[in-house]
Design a protein around this nucleic acid. Structure first.
Lengths: 121, 121
DNA sequence: CGTCTATGTTGACACACGTCGAATCAACAG
DNA sequence: CTGTTGATTCGACGTGTGTCAACATAGACG
């Protein structure tokens, strides 16, 4: 692969207010496709534990070494963290030896509002 | 099957406040397992569209025939509705010729609070 | 440089999942 | 009772997903 600068198109999908309220009108295929990706990311027990571990850690960020005790091998932990990052729920940053993962509060808020608004209707 | 009254144990799992806030503490394996089931149910585009169609329908209930236009075959629609029902997000009732599905507001509210509380922390 | 620890990546495997066609069941019309 | 329409169940198929062992990469520390 070339080492040249990649196109800006390659950056992760923007964390837009992607979530039309569930009770307002039936979701379109495209809306459902985007929204389902996030729910799917949280639809695995191991990922949910990892995400909760990061979210409940001090400052909403945690080193991988602090949250790797979820009963699966280390490569599997890395795999799930990658999935969560691809879904836009986590972001990672390398600081020296360790890699830290942080939660993406805006995405969580959007998902929460999507459900609470739905429940309130 | 017998027509006698079934034991109360057979009723669907109670809609308890099953959701410890995501940022309070890391979820246990059991908590994550239960919570992930609900997110997983919403993690499929077709199911999300079906759920949204029911939730946005008048009175929060809809006949299957009204929401079957999601681009998949009718058996597949039935399959997904069953999944949503098993996850506790929908309930079904037969009225004459048609079967109506309704949303379970309390479950939605619990999931929403789980996320919004997480985002607020 | 070499080595050690911490993460991420690859390849492979078993299993779960979404999908459909065909068969089946449920209610209604004749 | 027979036929028709709505809805679920069954059986099968292809794909996706979670998991691991093995290997590769990135810093840190002598």
């Amino acid at each position: 692969m070339s080492n040249a600068k990649v196109l800006p198109l390659l950056e992760p999908e923007l964390v837009e207010p992607c979530c039309p309220p569930l009770t307002e009108r039936p979701l379109t295929a495209d809306e459902a496709d985007r929204t389902a990706k996030m729910f799917k990311a949280l639809g695995d027990p191991v990922r949910l534990r990892l995400f909760s571990a990061v979210a409940s850690h001090e400052g909403g960020e945690a080193c991988v070494c602090d949250i790797s005790d979820v009963g699966v091998s280390q490569p599997t932990v890395s795999h799930h963290l990658k999935k969560l990052k691809e879904a836009g729920l986590l972001s990672s940053e390398r600081r020296g030896t360790w890699v830290y993962y942080r939660v993406e509060p805006s995405v969580l808020a959007a998902m929460g509002q999507l459900l609470t608004k739905a429940a309130a209707a």
